[in-house]
């Protein structure tokens, strides 16, 4: 039993398909109107069938008014960290504090190289991401005097200016699966953002992963509660009868999600499938009941 006690957030995990850009924007608008907390977008800059995720988020932010938006997760090798930090802070200002930041060390290296990016090993990726998170926080920190300096293994900055400052305290959520990256998440990140279907061993391995993040957080002098646990769930559907996790009637969704909160420590749920009707039911029927049930159990 692990519950970190975070407030619950519900949202969607959207495919940024270039085939039907309007439908993708409409998915954000639907999430906004339905009262979801978050709409997040995959980021694969080397995938020609996808829209550029940062451009899409900037555009969708203007078309929505309440929902928060984030990349899920941005591909660090093609999103230089200072540039990304300035873009995120700018949009956070423009959208009145509705932007969050999801980031990962990179995957699909052939695609990254084909776009001119740098291929890194898994171990190098951990160091590069740690340096990047440092740079991002420095860019956002306008209260410290002087420019940004880092003579890192993967990034070099010598006196770059700070700012803009985001409108709110933008959390950095890291997509991570392997031990070293999970340790980095615990030590430096504000959230762990995996996709359930990609977690080796599935839910059974989550308690072990949480433990690893918690230990790394403690070792860095932080509390486990400093790291929100978010979860992408790709295969979800409303069904008349129970079939699998989040594939069943509303009541089952509610129980499944409450279980994920109370037993696995997750507090943010982002569903895939790109189906506006599912997103609306998720917001209207599932989310309030999960909040109620969890409040009772906590």
């Amino acid at each position: 039993m692990t519950d970190y006690g975070h407030d619950l957030l519900f949202g969607t995990f959207v495919t940024p398909s270039a085939q039907s850009p309007q439908k993708v924007v409409d998915l954000a608008v639907t999430a906004d109107r339905a009262g979801l907390d978050l709409v997040t977008f995959q980021d694969h800059p080397y995938q020609p069938a996808f829209l550029d995720t940062w451009t899409l988020i900037s555009y969708a932010a203007a078309r929505t008014s309440r929902v928060h938006l984030a990349g899920n997760v941005h591909s660090l090798p093609l999103r230089p960290p200072a540039m990304l930090a300035r873009a995120v802070a700018s949009l956070d200002r423009l959208s009145d504090g509705r932007i969050e930041l999801g980031i990962g060390a990179g995957a699909f290296w052939d695609g990254i190289e084909a776009m001119g990016g740098r291929r890194l090993t898994a171990a190098q990726g951990v160091t590069a991401l740690r340096e990047a998170i440092g740079i991002i926080r420095e860019v956002w920190d306008v209260s410290t005097r002087g420019g940004i300096h880092l003579d890192g293994e993967f990034y070099q900055v010598d006196g770059a200016k700070r700012g803009p400052e985001p409108a709110h305290d933008v959390p950095i959520w890291v997509g991570s699966y392997k031990p070293k990256m999970l340790e980095l998440t615990g030590a430096y990140a504000d959230g762990w953002l995996p996709t359930l279907e990609y977690i080796e061993g599935g839910l059974d391995s989550v308690p072990g992963i949480n433990g690893r993040i918690d230990e790394a957080a403690a070792a860095a002098g932080r509390s486990p509660g400093d790291v929100r646990r978010l979860l992408n769930l790709m295969n979800v559907s409303f069904q008349p009868t129970s079939r699998a996790l989040l594939n069943g009637p509303v009541d089952q969704w509610v129980e499944d999600l409450a279980g994920l909160v109370l037993e696995y420590g997750f507090s943010t749920f982002l569903i895939g499938g790109d189906d506006p009707a599912v997103a609306e039911r998720f917001a209207a029927e599932v989310a309030p009941q999960v909040r109620e049930l969890v409040a009772r159990e906590r």
Binding site: D52, L78, M83, G117
Partner: peptide, 10 residues
């Protein structure tokens, strides 16, 4: 190595 430099391809 430059955290400000974008990619023309992107």
């Amino acid at each position: 190595r430059d955290p400000e430099a974008g990619y023309p391809s992107v």
